[in-house]
């Protein structure tokens, strides 16, 4: 195996081996709720990545001063701050997007991935390493959401990014856009991943 720079390894950790959506199955609520279309999924993923990276950076900067007795409370306040920031940013960028994502932007606060990263990584590592690690996780989360959103939009609406793919003859498979579809598609992706993981392990 070729030796890659350490930062790359660290980054790919979250994108692939520890992918929060497909491997760890963390932070599922927004994953399923907003993944009805590719664009919603992508925006939600980017918003989460922003919160993840900025709160991990701040926590890592402050890690030497944050008293360990009140660390969780401090982390939650910091995360909630960045979520509020991103909430306003999205409102400023596009109201349509804001309406589509609804309360799920604010629910980023309780996304277990962020608190998990803050506690397990950012509180122990210097800012640069924390940012790279958080970025990896964020990209992995965005990829997962995007994969889910794309499948649901293509099957459920016959479109991708709002562009119709199959013409008028296509009868959309609407259940894919409804709540059960979210569970089924995510289950399908997990199945695919565990299939490949098993094959690699067996080989």
């Amino acid at each position: 195996m070729k030796t890659r720079p350490l930062a790359w390894e660290e980054f790919m950790e979250g994108v692939w081996r520890q992918n929060p959506v497909f491997v760890m199955a963390l932070g599922m609520c927004p994953v399923l709720a907003v993944s009805v279309s590719a664009i919603n999924a992508l925006s939600m993923g980017l918003a989460t990545t922003f919160v993840l990276v900025s709160s991990c950076a701040l926590i890592s900067l402050l890690r030497k001063w944050i008293p360990k007795e009140v660390r969780i409370a401090t982390y939650i306040v910091i995360i909630a701050t960045f979520v509020t920031v991103v909430d306003y940013l999205i409102q400023a960028i596009s109201l349509t997007l804001y309406e589509a994502l609804g309360a799920f932007i604010q629910l980023i606060v309780v996304n277990c991935i962020i608190l998990g990263r803050a506690e397990a990584h950012a509180s122990k590592n210097p800012p640069l390493a924390a940012i790279i690690n958080a970025l990896g996780m964020g990209v992995g989360f965005t990829l997962g959401l995007f994969a889910l959103g794309s499948v649901r939009e293509i099957l459920g609406a016959g479109a991708w990014f709002g562009i119709s793919l199959f013409g008028d003859g296509f009868q959309p498979w609407v259940v894919m856009l409804l709540p059960p579809g979210g569970f089924f598609v995510l289950g399908g992706w997990l199945l695919l991943f565990s299939f490949f993981a098993r094959r690699r392990a067996g080989a």
Binding site: L62, V70, T74, A92
Partner: peptide, 29 residues
């Protein structure tokens, strides 16, 4: 002291974001 520092940082971030986007948000609406 540390909690006050964290609160100050977070407070200014939130206020900055709120003020910075206020006009754009109202315009959008």
């Amino acid at each position: 002291r540390v909690l006050a520092l964290v609160a100050a940082i977070c407070g200014s971030l939130v206020v900055a974001a709120h003020q910075g986007t206020l006009s754009a948000v109202q315009e959008n609406k």
